[in-house]
């Protein structure tokens, strides 16, 4: 579960950061479109890609994490998921108000 928590943390951070970054970078959006035909499809694939790669790497490098590490990673994952959802909702609200 530790490896999955780490993979999910990185995947959620990626999804949040690239979503906000893309709104200010037409070049990034065009690149994502060129990868998969639609920016959202590319973001979906990369999000799962980050989850799987980080999961495998952490599982290989740290097969026996401590109790504290397992608990800490799970708590960080929950906090990042809730904060990420709040940040994206507020970002698009602010973006709509300003633009």
């Amino acid at each position: 579960m530790y490896a999955s928590s780490c993979g999910a943390i990185i995947a959620i951070l990626y999804a949040t950061i690239v979503t906000i970054w893309m709104e200010y970078s037409p070049g990034l959006k065009a690149w994502l479109v060129s990868v998969a035909g639609h920016h959202w499809t590319a973001k979906s694939l990369f999000t799962m890609g980050f989850y799987i790669v980080i999961f495998i790497v952490v599982y290989e490098l740290k097969p026996n994490p401590s109790d504290q590490q397992i608990r800490g990673a799970l708590k960080k994952l929950i906090a990042i998921a809730i904060l990420g959802a709040i940040i994206l909702t507020l970002f698009f609200t602010e973006h709509y108000m300003v633009v």
Binding site: S4, A11, I12, K43, S44, T47, L74, A81, G84
Partner: peptide
């Protein structure tokens, strides 16, 4: 679209990694 859809389509990306965990 500008708020609800944009938030929905991107927050959804969180759900499958969380559910796998």
């Amino acid at each position: 679209h500008a708020i609800a859809m944009e938030a929905k389509e991107h927050i959804f990306l969180f759900v499958v990694p969380l559910a796998l965990t």
